[in-house]
């Protein structure tokens, strides 16, 4: 009888421990399966927005540049008509300022490469997120498989399931519970 009591006590202890393991896994899987894809999507949105805005700005710069080229030609035409000194002076000044503007426009254009530089940094952030996902995957799998005598195929199966869950756009608690059920938890 005493022996049975000790076995039952031990069993209850095991169930409690298992419950803690389940609770410990549920939260990170549930949170990460939402946060990681969401963050990745947000960064991809930022990259797209940056690209679209950069093109819009460059379109506007091109229009200004074309207008400046027209002004340049018109001023040159007016100067070729040999205007009186005062008008000529003003036209020369317009020509000079217009050339200055054209150079500034080109400089602005080259500064648009910030999009490329920012994009490369964001790509690095995406790579870090992917690494985080894999580390989390390893932690979860090692927690699930700890102390269990599982075959290699079973471990890789669990890994695949968790990875699938972490890559999904959105998962709810049901998905997490279903997954844990598949692990026998």
């Amino acid at each position: 009888m005493k022996e049975l009591e000790s076995i039952i006590k031990e069993l209850i202890e095991n169930v409690r421990e298992l419950e803690q393991v389940i609770e410990g896994i549920k939260k990170p899987v549930s949170e990460s399966s939402q946060l990681l894809p969401e963050t990745t999507r947000n960064i991809e949105d930022v990259m797209l927005f940056l690209e679209q805005t950069s093109h819009s700005i460059m379109n506007l710069l091109e229009i200004i540049n074309k207008n400046s080229e027209i002004i340049k030609k018109d001023v040159e035409f007016l100067l070729s008509l040999n205007p009186i000194s005062k008008v000529k002076q003003k036209l020369e000044s317009i020509k000079e300022k217009n050339n200055e503007n054209i150079n500034i426009l080109l400089e602005l254009y080259t500064h648009m490469s910030f999009h490329d530089l920012a994009g490369q940094q964001l790509k690095l952030v995406l790579q870090v997120l992917e690494k985080l996902k894999n580390s989390l995957l390893d932690i979860i799998v090692s927690q699930v498989t700890a102390g269990r005598d599982l075959k290699e195929e079973e471990v890789s199966g669990i890994k695949g399931k968790v990875s699938e869950l972490l890559s999904k756009e959105r998962v709810d608690q049901k998905d997490v519970d279903k997954l844990l059920e598949e692990f026998g938890l």
Binding site: E62, S113, D116
Partner: peptide, 18 residues
């Protein structure tokens, strides 16, 4: 050759200016 469309456009514009 560049994967960023904005960068290709910048280089093309500078080349055009040259």
């Amino acid at each position: 050759v560049d994967d960023m469309s904005t960068m290709r456009r910048i280089i093309k514009t500078i080349l055009n200016q040259l």
